[in-house]
Design a protein around this nucleic acid. Structure first.
Lengths: 340, 340
DNA sequence: GGAGCTAATGTTATCGATAACCTAAGCTTA
DNA sequence: TAAGCTTAGGTTATCGATAACATTAGCTCC
């Protein structure tokens, strides 16, 4: 099964087989223009028999149109993103647009190359996560793009043509109030890679500011060189309670880290929520799988993707679109924080 | 910030600005041919100042070459895949190839459209997960592709030009032997979506066969309409032990489901491993985050991606490549199965 | 000193489609 | 019945690059 097969079939070959011109084949396959039923049949059959696959390079070059929508995300392993993407796809798919994904790995250099690569195919639109430090080259590429561009996951700092996402500042404030209402005052924050994920950093800063306004000092335990996953949550929590056994509430960067932290707290004999309250972020289904129902902030991820895709379609149609859509946030009370 | 910007800059404009022909610009930017340092400078600067971005549609169409590598995966939320992909990228990136990802959502229909869309851009290569039911159209498209194609994640059933992945049958046998060696005889399997994930199904069948050979009946609890995640593992385990409290070992489809199951077992008062042994599959970092260190089968995911990418590069260079690479599997003994 | 190189650049054809316009036949309709 | 419209299809130019070959000037070298 070699791959050095014959040259792919072109319109010309289909045309020859069907006994018509290339243009006629093109019209039949795109269902434009007026073609008799008889010809239509012959062309379809010829294309089918030859296994004709249109060449999008030629097609898009010529028509200056594309069915490709580029999506660039920091990490495909971040569970968070998959639902945003499925929201995007659920709206885009029925319209015939195809989503092509690029993964930047949180590296600005890689992200820049991805933007360059994707834009060089002149996509119909581009969606990218907000909250990343972007290189100057990337900004330049985006500034000169000739398609609509949408920022996902961030609504505090608007960018590109449309932003769909939560206010991370609001999220930070929600958690702060949640703790304050419950009379918790020795509060810690556990996170990782805050230098890369600026959205998470903004949540942290808002939490910090809200607590400060209430006269509370926030203790933070973070590291930049470990993944934002359960293992890291567990590791940092261990470090935290060893040095500060007095704390009575922890907010984690995300649910995965919170679960890691919880596992350590149980093991080390810190009852949750009696002794320490825990709040995560995201509302991933993960959160309800363990015996504890994690208190967390639920983010409507699918809706974010849907709104983004809808806005994209409208912009492609040259319709007017608002500047942003702010995703509603809900702090879901589980059993890792005591009732107020 | 509208998106209906001016027409993108073309080679011709750069050429005019630099006072040379298009061909010269093309050669400078691709670093081929011989061009004087002076001209090279002027062209580079002109391109820079105009913000020239090559049009890959035109470039690839003309040269019949591409820097794009297509990857089609069933689900980006499946943690498993992210590491395979990072292995792929670590090899491909330095060579200048760009990975474009498509997500099929386990739907053959969607997968077919993705294959069509990606192949229509004439990529340098295509990588796809094995173990999915593929539509006839998809097979046709793949048969007529004119680039190397590689199957990931499955090495039992070889397909395309190269296969990189574990033997899922071996995995099933490993688990069976693990249980048998420990004298466990009331064994259950918990999984989901086995109709879609044929690799998982093959593990299950091998487990079943190996146990049968030892005179053991395997009890299986599965469902097709729930995700292969922790919640489902928990739900099915609850159902399992309610109806069959006598079982003494469970193999889960993956680690996520195993963790969900574990949480229920703890809660329901089934000590692990004293009363019930548990084995997962994958060796995700998740496995070590909770108090229990899950016994599981470690799959070298990054290596799979690397081998696949290396094979792809070799095929692009027209070098000979073996038919497959079988990923070594290790059953990692945690503390959810008692020592033999 | 001219045949033969090499280096630096330009010309032309082509990749595989689509846009925009054109043509011829058949049909209305006043 | 001739102007005018439809229908079905074809022609030509173009999209933005690259491959392959052509050209020109300066140099080498016997």
């Amino acid at each position: 099964m070699g791959h050095e097969r014959r040259k792919p079939v072109t319109l010309l070959e289909v045309a020859a087989k069907a006994g018509v011109s290339r243009m006629t084949v093109s019209k039949v396959l795109r269902e434009v223009g007026s073609i008799s039923d008889d010809t239509r049949q012959r062309v379809r059959q010829a294309a089918q028999e030859l296994g004709y696959l249109p060449n999008s390079l030629a097609g898009s070059l010529s028509s200056r149109k594309s069915q490709m929508v580029a999506v660039i995300i920091p990490s495909i392993s971040d569970i968070v993103f998959s639902e945003v993407l499925s929201g995007v796809n659920s709206v885009l798919r029925p319209t015939g647009f195809q989503t092509f994904i690029g993964e930047s790995g949180f590296e600005p250099e890689t992200e820049t190359e991805l933007i360059r690569a994707m834009l060089s195919f002149r996509p119909a639109g581009i969606l990218m996560n907000g909250g990343m430090a972007r290189s100057a080259d990337a900004e330049g590429l985006l500034a000169r793009r000739n398609c609509p561009a949408i920022q996902l996951w961030d609504c505090d700092r608007r960018a590109l043509d449309f932003s769909a996402g939560p206010s991370h500042e609001e999220a930070g404030r929600l958690v702060a109030n949640h703790f304050i209402e419950r009379g918790l005052r020795r509060i810690a924050y556990v996170g990782a890679e805050l230098d890369k994920d600026l959205c998470a950093r903004r949540r942290y800063l808002a939490l910090n500011a809200s607590l400060a306004a209430a006269g509370i000092d926030l203790l933070s335990v973070t590291c930049e060189d470990r993944p934002r996953q359960a293992v890291t949550g567990r590791f940092l929590t261990e470090q935290l309670v060893r040095e500060h056994p007095e704390i009575d509430a922890i907010h984690f960067l995300n649910d995965a880290m919170a679960l890691g932290g919880l596992s350590y707290l149980h093991e080390a004999g810190f009852p949750v929520p009696e002794r320490i309250s825990v709040v995560g972020f995201n509302g991933t289904s993960l959160a309800n799988a363990v015996r504890t129902r994690l208190s967390t902030i639920d983010v409507p991820r699918t809706a974010i993707g849907e709104k983004a895709a809808q806005a994209l379609l409208q912009m492609i149609e040259d319709e007017d679109v608002p500047e942003f859509w702010q995703a509603p946030l809900v702090l879901v009370q589980g059993n890792t924080t005591a009732a107020a």
